[in-house]
Simulated scan of single mutants.
Amino acid sequence: MARSPSSSAQSAREQLAARLRELRLEAGITGHELALRCQWSPAKSSRLEHAQTVPSDSDVRAWCAACGKPDLAPDLIAENRRVDQLYMEWRRLHRHGMRLAQEKFLPLHQNASVQRAYVSNVVPGFLQTQDYARALLSTITRFQGTPDDVEEAVRSRAMRARVLREGDHRVVAILEESVLRYRIGSAQVMADQLVHLLEVMSLPSLALGVIPFTARREGRMWTLEAFYVFDDDRVMAELLSAEISITTPSDIAVYQQAFAELAQMAVYGPAARRLITDAITLLRDSSART
């Protein structure tokens, strides 16, 4: 079974905690003595040493000073900040609104020669119409209770679509058929989004596959959280509470294997177009009856 998508972050935290413990042991002091030198509780020392609490920059400085190794603090602080980026809570990422987050991750899309996206819930950002993105980002903003800069965020997100038309990029997107049926925004917004998918399918840079409801799952891949693979360098996995950056090669390989198996279950070309067209027809028929 695949490891938890947060395993890279947790493993990195544990390695940092182990390094702090090594410093204490090399200094020949107990956890209680270290706590006295740092002027905090022994319980805090234990939590830091067992990766139960994320250390602040000042915690790392105090720990290194207490162990007689203040010169090691800058490197450990840099490592701690790198670890902190592996698991980014949405509310913290969006604390100033969503536009900055959209701009932060744009280089990942621009710099990747090949990016692979698997989604089981919503249309991936680089394939979204502005109205669809507006409806989705408005809902996320309401749910998270973060500042509303949806219009700016929509414009920033639209820049991701440039990878389909500019430069030498290759994009492979696999959608569960449910993505075509979940209504984001009004019926017209959703219909326009589906029509847009039909239009971009003809782009040479894009391979778009849809896994039908009828695909057999027995002995094959189950539905997963949305994730994006950028070349062989990074995976971004999206959870309800956080976005996780995965850089450990073994974890990246797990997602690449999962993507390959999901891609085998998808249909492409005319068969995928039929599924999208059927979703449009069902949407319009349902709208006409209400």
Rank of each mutant, 00 (worst) to 15 (best):
P147D: 02
D57N: 15
E49G: 09
L23N: 09
A161E: 12
A73H: 11
I174F: 07
V150G: 01
A271D: 15
L208K: 05
T277H: 02
C67M: 09
M201W: 03
I174H: 03
A101H: 08
K104Y: 08
A78I: 08
T281A: 13
D149K: 05
Q85W: 09
K104G: 03
R95V: 03
L127C: 08
S241I: 04
L76H: 07
S4D: 15
W222T: 09
L20D: 08
H196D: 04
D148A: 07
S4A: 14
I211Q: 07
A207Y: 00
S286H: 08
Q256F: 00
L93E: 10
L127H: 05
S120G: 15
S205A: 15
L224E: 12
M190T: 11
D192S: 13
G68C: 10
A153M: 07
S120D: 12
N111P: 00
E166M: 05
E199D: 15
W63E: 07
L127M: 10
R183D: 02
L208D: 05
Q257L: 12
H109P: 00
A161Y: 01
V119F: 05
I246S: 01
L48V: 09
A263E: 15
A66K: 03
L180K: 08
R183P: 03
Y255S: 02
V210L: 02
G219D: 06
A112D: 06
V171I: 14
V235D: 06
M265E: 11
D168M: 05
F105G: 00
T248K: 12
E261P: 01
K44E: 09
E166I: 13
V119S: 11
P249T: 03
D57P: 14
C64Q: 10
L86Y: 07
V235M: 04
A260R: 14
L240E: 10
R170I: 09
R181C: 09
L203G: 01
Y118H: 08
V179I: 07
I280C: 04
V267T: 11
A65S: 14
S205V: 00
N121L: 11
E79S: 10
F230L: 02
K69R: 15
L203K: 02
Y132N: 03
Q115H: 14
R24T: 08
L198M: 11
L198D: 06
S287E: 13
L262Y: 02
T139A: 13
S186C: 04
E49A: 14
A191I: 06
L106Q: 11
R273N: 12
V179Y: 01
A272R: 04
E225I: 00
R47K: 14
S45D: 03
V195T: 11
T223P: 13
V54L: 13
S45V: 15
S202R: 13
L25W: 07
T146G: 00
R183C: 04
T139L: 02
L262M: 12
A17G: 12
G68E: 10
S250L: 06
R19Y: 05
K44A: 08
L203W: 03
N111C: 04
R95P: 02
A17W: 10
